[in-house]
């Protein structure tokens, strides 16, 4: 890493906190639905009588809803777990497609998030040796910028293309840079610089050039 200052550590911690807050919000929403559904089943049981029995269809529908939410909770915890383990090793080899897919799911918890898909332009798997946590943070901020500019209805594709053997280019489609949400901010610039990621951002273009190996970054 080129830069390892206290500020960078604080920015990293702030990113970790932000993502965890959005995950805990999602989990609270899931718990709220389970709580209300269980409460409704309890209300129905209290009111049920021989003349007014609880219908099997209602029971099936509400218990099905609880099962769905529990599954949603498991998926959320799985993503939280993958994200948390991204700090296990400071520098390691990661598959960019898998990383972007996780980041898309993490940004999906934000209230202003639109939809995003990841696309591999080539046949080979885009592996990079980097600091996974910082790279995740940079991609996350880029996607957040996309959603803030495009609004909740927006759909975007994040493409990963090989430039040459030393660089992978991540391209965000449908860019409309709003002056109110200018990317990158200083924190993201610091994090990108620390891992040798070049950010190309204009009014209608957002690309990240990621070195295949952080060890080649001077």
């Amino acid at each position: 890493m080129k830069k390892s200052t206290d500020l960078l550590k604080y920015e990293s911690l702030a990113f970790f906190g932000k993502v965890n807050a959005s995950i805990s919000h999602e989990l609270k929403n899931i718990m709220a639905i389970i709580s209300e559904t269980a409460g409704l089943l309890s209300d129905m049981a209290d009111m049920a009588s021989t003349e007014n029995p609880v219908s099997p269809e209602s029971l099936k529908s509400y218990t099905g809803s609880v099962i769905e939410e529990i599954q949603r909770g498991f998926n959320t915890i799985r993503q939280m777990n993958r994200f948390s383990h991204s700090v296990d090793t400071p520098i390691t080899e990661v598959n960019l497609i898998e990383m972007i897919d996780l980041v898309i799911q993490l940004t999906g918890y934000l209230s202003f998030a639109g939809k995003a898909h990841v696309h591999n332009c080539g046949d080979s798997k885009p592996f990079v040796k980097t600091c996974p946590f910082l790279l995740q943070a940079v991609i996350y901020q880029a996607l957040v910028n996309q959603f803030k500019n495009g609004g909740p209805g927006m759909e975007t594709t994040v493409s990963v293309c090989s430039q040459d053997q030393s660089i992978w280019r991540v391209i965000f489609s449908d860019i409309e840079q709003d002056s109110a949400h200018v990317f990158p901010d200083d924190n993201t610039k610091d994090m990108a610089e620390a891992i040798g990621v070049k950010i190309i951002c204009t009014a209608n273009r957002l690309e990240l050039d990621i070195p295949s190996s952080i060890e080649t970054v001077s």
Binding site: N29, A32, I33, E36, T37, G39, L40, S65, E69, S111
Partner: peptide, 8 residues
């Protein structure tokens, strides 16, 4: 916006 929560 949590549809199930609101309806329950």
């Amino acid at each position: 916006d949590e549809k199930k929560f609101a309806s329950m």
